[in-house]
């Protein structure tokens, strides 16, 4: 819809910027598109738990038949790095306690984060360094996110049909369902 509403008296001038006053936590959503090879970041939802986060993500980001797999990650479980932050040159020592992390990369400005793969690392910084070394060439990385693999909640593949198929027979959600004569121009 549209929004060129001029400012009037009483309208808020500045937003203080509180981010922590949510009753429901924030979850980051990743969708593997139909025919896609990897999970793509799809922005966020708010939900009281993982199960509801998956349902909210489905209803918000998959109202048509775009996806075949869905992940949600608690926003707080993600460690974020971008070009403005310094990063240690070397990885942490071998032998320290390590676990599995998932890495997401945004390869250029304007693009969406893509799931790049899994890495074994000691901590978040180590995971970012290793992700950089594993998945980036020198110039192409704008930002990296990492999350412990166990923080990812995936939609149950057995429930995929129930999650993704209800929209498949709703052709009226597609623009092409409507027969509009060519002479009225592109619509």
């Amino acid at each position: 819809m549209s929004y060129s509403v001029p400012k009037i008296a009483g309208e808020s001038d500045t937003i203080v910027g509180r981010t922590e006053d949510h009753l429901w936590a924030r979850w980051e959503v990743f969708v593997r598109p139909r025919g896609g090879v990897t999970h793509v970041y799809s922005e966020s939802v708010h939900a009281p738990d993982a199960e509801t986060a998956l349902l909210n993500a489905r209803d918000t980001y998959l109202r048509r038949v775009e996806g075949v797999s869905l992940w949600v990650i608690p926003s707080g479980a993600i460690s974020r790095w971008d070009e403005h932050q310094a990063l240690p040159e070397s990885r942490s020592e071998e032998g320290s306690a390590r676990r599995l992390w998932e890495a997401f990369i945004r390869h250029r400005r304007g693009a969406q984060f893509l799931h790049a793969g899994s890495i074994v690392a000691a901590d978040a910084v180590d995971a970012i360094v290793r992700a950089r070394d594993a998945f980036l060439t020198k110039t192409d990385g704008v930002a990296i996110w990492v999350a412990p693999s166990e923080a990812i909640v995936a939609a149950d593949p057995d429930e995929a049909e129930m999650l993704f198929e209800p929209f498949a027979d709703k052709g009226y959600r597609q623009a092409t369902y409507y027969d509009i004569p060519e002479e009225v121009g592109y619509m």
């Binding site: 509403v5 009483g10 808020s12 981010t19 922005e43 966020s44 939802v45 708010h46």
Partner: peptide
């Protein structure tokens, strides 16, 4: 969700709307 990336929460924006301190399109 896009607004939240600017360091503001959805709940806060909803509150500002309800308090009449933010607007929506007049067409509605």
């Amino acid at each position: 969700s896009a607004a939240e990336t600017l360091g503001v929460s959805r709940d806060e924006l909803v509150r500002l709307l309800h308090e009449g301190r933010q607007k929506y399109s007049s067409i509605f």
